[in-house]
Write a protein that binds this DNA or RNA. Sequence first.
DNA 1: GACAGAAGTTACCGCCGGTAACACACTAGC
DNA 2: GCTAGTGTGTTACCGGCGGTAACTTCTGTC
Lengths: 211, 211
Amino acid sequence: MATKAAAPAPDSPPPGRPQATRRGPRTRQELLDAAERVVLRDGPSASMNAIATEAGITKPILYRHFGDKAGLYVALADRHIETLLARLQEALTRPATRQERTRAAIDAWLRLVEGNPALYRFLVHRGQAEEPEVRDRVAMFQRRLGNALAVGIAAELDLPEDQWPRAQAWAHGIVGMVQAAGDWWLDEQPFGREDLTRHLADLIDGAYTRA
Amino acid sequence: MATKAAAPAPDSPPPGRPQATRRGPRTRQELLDAAERVVLRDGPSASMNAIATEAGITKPILYRHFGDKAGLYVALADRHIETLLARLQEALTRPATRQERTRAAIDAWLRLVEGNPALYRFLVHRGQAEEPEVRDRVAMFQRRLGNALAVGIAAELDLPEDQWPRAQAWAHGIVGMVQAAGDWWLDEQPFGREDLTRHLADLIDGAYTRA
DNA sequence: GACAGAAGTTACCGCCGGTAACACACTAGC
DNA sequence: GCTAGTGTGTTACCGGCGGTAACTTCTGTC
């Protein structure tokens, strides 16, 4: 009974949450918007106090809404991760040639990198501090992405089941490849996005061709 | 005069440091050993107090030796990064076939991943909290690695100068690829290290072959 | 109008990174 | 032998963090 309001709704809001929009002066969405503003401005080390101030409230409300800092960050990440994953899925299953699918998926990723670097760094990169919950969430996102890509590769190459581990290794490697190349490119910007897309697609196509 | 002993030796110890071993009861090396023990046990969120206790001393001594937490972590990382980088350089310039060099470099990396996962995570992965100094150091390590690999690729393929950006994109991508695949493999362990080495080398060789 | 309950506040806790100020050893010079 | 100086170590503190308890509105309902 000591922690009466400790576990009110750490993750139930997304599914149900009918009363949040009732007469509440501040919607969960508004809080997330404010949090995103601060995190994108101050980096992932933004304090809960700063976020609360930006939202025009005080700390305990944030904690009532999101449980703890990790909960807030996870909610923040989830808003974008799902849409990004959907966009990548669409690119990967688009009815087109294999090369075009590859290029479309890489381009979708790089568009996020280029369009909102701060958001990209928050979502994908290290930077979520040591919060293990958030780390796991981001790792899970990359893992899901890799697994989806592995299925696509196995289908693409018509691999027999005993070759699936190879497809998985490739898939998770390719995810990391695009990410790392995007990081480097974001810093150096030695050429346009289209060029990087083409270079990376070339690399992957080479592997496909030889497989 | 307020901070009389604030800037005694934040980074001068590595080069000179003749008096540290004079009659000092505790060597810088011993402190780093203790710090490494704690970090590898508790993760990168280990507190300075815990490290000091492990070393049998108290906090201010740590701060006199390393300046701040980032300085300690950088010193900790540097001990291993240089040797790892040298090992990779050796594999990349070894007199052998291109395939063998590729495999040797990947294998050197994966041996570290397999042999000491905690150290690997500390060195390469996210996890150094938000300390930007340490983040930069690790990023710089990967960047150096990618640049060295880019030179190797350009030489390997005899690329004209106007094609160097492509080699760079590939190099930084490949570094991320091996790292991400290694992460995934470390968690799932669906097959032996040699298999992963072979799969990744195949992917890269395919690109080479088609280039 | 009394009441349930959500929204919001102040004020606190323990811990963290980091620092100031002081105490002890040891060696050097007279 | 005594003092001065320097490096090693300590205790005790600071501001700020994440997180919580306890209290105060404010709002709508019967």
